[in-house]
Design a protein around this nucleic acid. Structure first.
Lengths: 357, 357
DNA sequence: CTGGCGCTTTGGATCGTTCCAGGAAGTGGC
DNA sequence: GCCACTTCCTGGAACGATCCAAAGCGCCAG
């Protein structure tokens, strides 16, 4: 890589082919400047602050940029501006549950939305013993400008840790009980979702509507449950004996629904997840009951399973596209100058009605 | 390029707090060097080529690194070495089909494996009109070192285009008919998977085993089909009248299986996807037939649906973890010095047996 | 005692961009 | 005719790392 000569590394390059099929090193600011007969800084301005240039000059520079196929070198820009235009997203450990399905949709939306804001998404994995490890490295090496934290609902330490480091981040998920939290967040109103689902069933004439949810220590689970109970009480109906709290597995859902059917004789089920709802469907099948005709079932997350399973599973759908948009907007506020700390934003889910209700 | 003064922009920084709660700018090589009483280059060597240092010096430098919590600045390193240690992965447009589920697992594995090789995964989206747009920008701005292309099986132009640009990339997916292809690739032997599935059914005593696959213009579809027919012919059984080729939807799968049941009376189905298999299950349910007891069904991809649906769906599972490992290995070969162009690698899937067979 | 040879360590240059201070040209007021 | 002011553009410095050529040092042969 020895480039001898007066202007080391620069001269002898102008003969290179532009654009298509170019195989030499990519053009730099200096190349464009030379071609357009202006200084480096002027080219830089043409790219970043076009208003500063005289219209005539701007056109000339833009032509040179076009002819050479110039694009600013990311590394150099990052070094100088101390920004990478990357946001880090940690993939949570693989759990073949429904949460993943939602995650997948969210990532898609996020990548799409970020692009428009000039950001790219950097994935990293935190499967090691220390969940914070990945964050620390990326932060200290200034590899990302900010993080997007998706699992605050696990009561995890990320938020606290990031706050202490003064690392910019936006959370998908409420800080729940954490009163010290001052970071921007976006979340989906799970209670509103289950309330909507329950009302939907009430409107269909159901009066004994059961709940199958997660264990009591899950904030999300309790939140979703509250929507169900609110809707019932609103119509003066009792909830006693109609709720069951179990682990998030198909088997648990099946078991819980079997017990409820025997003891409380509900005509409909609202579940905290599609996984649990699948368990209910299994129990119904075993007893020769037809979902949607004999008993109604509603799930949560509108996962692929809900779309594909037999009569179709009615499910609460999180507006992940809107979540992504809001997250990116908060990110822009946070990283802008001056930085604005956005507040929390709670979005309302929708109900996708299918054959099961 | 004369730098006047001793260390412009550096002095007045040594009073900054180290590590925990540090709010000032992160430490640089020069900071570490000063603290350890060596030159910048020596610190750099301590990080990148520890063998070059005398043991004693190494310890001293490492202590200084530890005390200051130093980590090399990514941007500066990238600029100098002309490498970003990022690999680009384009998320294919959202299609709520089974392919996504596999993609999700693959991304996970890839992120995990890349980390060990010192790479991070940069996601980008190519949903615009031009599928190549994202690639071009990232390449010209030297934002990524290489790409991972996941959808060569669509007969897409990415591979050709990347080759022309001499962009390093590894494909997950065979180049199929493309004889000009000289890039490394990793793929899963779909035919071996369906062959395994068919043999599994044969061993259970089935003799009339039907195929429901994709349309003829799908290379992958035809590949998977060939495994089924090979296994049947191997035992001297005929395939005529037992195959159906349709679109990849639940509805099509249900329709196709209904027709096959009426006309060919198979006792088992092998499907090109879990989606199609779900269609078969639906038809069976409508006719009061029990999967696994009356009729066996095997899907492909071992998606979440296969795990969650009632009796459990037997399915061919792609070894995506191994794919990721092989992809990253090929990547390292490709980007190493000297670059080695790895050859193609075909991995064998496994069969996950569940209640449906 | 000197020259040669490894083994360590060093200072200067460089990667490609943006920040900063200031220069050149044009305009208007007095 | 001079100064103030705006508009447009320029060259040097800086960001923080690595590459490169060479220097210091200890040791041994001649």
């Amino acid at each position: 890589m020895s480039r001898t000569g007066a202007h080391p590394g620069r001269e002898g390059r102008e003969g290179r082919e532009a654009r298509a099929g170019s195989s030499g090193p990519p053009p730099t600011l200096a190349d464009v400047a030379e071609r357009a007969g202006v200084s480096r800084q002027t080219v830089s301005n043409a790219v970043n602050n076009p208003d500063l240039l005289r219209a005539e000059t701007l056109v000339r520079v833009q032509e040179a940029i076009e002819e050479l196929g110039y694009l600013p070198n990311r590394a150099a820009r990052n070094l100088r501006t101390r920004a990478s235009h990357l946001v880090g997203l940690r993939l949570s450990p693989v759990q073949e549950g429904t949460a993943n399905a939602a995650m997948d949709r969210f990532v898609h939306s996020l990548v799409w939305t970020s692009r428009e804001a000039g950001y790219h998404v950097l994935l990293f994995s935190g499967e090691g013993p220390d969940p914070l490890e990945g964050y620390d490295d990326l932060l200290r090496s200034t590899a990302v400008d900010a993080f997007i934290v998706t699992d605050t609902y696990l009561g995890n330490p990320q938020a606290t840790w990031l706050r202490e480091r003064r690392a910019p981040f936006v959370a998908f998920g409420r800080p729940w009980g954490d009163v010290d939290a001052r970071h921007p967040w976006v979340d989906v109103d799970g209670a509103a979702g289950t309330e909507m689902a329950t009302r939907h069933l009430l409107d269909k004439g159901h009066e004994r509507i059961a709940w199958i949810g997660w264990r009591k220590d899950s904030r999300i689970g309790e939140d979703r449950r509250s929507g169900w109970s609110r809707a019932l009480r609103e119509r003066g109906l009792s909830t006693t004996g109609l709720a069951s709290r179990v682990e998030d597995t198909v088997w648990s859902g099946g078991e819980a629904s079997a017990v409820l059917l025997d003891e409380a004789r509900p005509t409909a089920f609202v579940c905290a997840s599609d996984t649990l709802a699948m368990g209910v469907l299994r129990t119904l099948a075993e007893r020769g009951l037809h979902p949607g005709r004999d008993i109604a079932v509603v799930g949560f997350d509108d996962s692929q399973v809900a779309q594909v399973v037999h009569p179709g599973l009615t499910s609460v759908r999180q507006p992940l596209e809107e979540v992504a948009i809001a997250v990116v907007r908060a990110l822009e506020d946070l990283l802008g100058a001056p930085p604005k700390v956005a507040e929390g934003l709670l979005l309302t889910p929708t109900l996708t009605v299918r054959g099961s209700s």
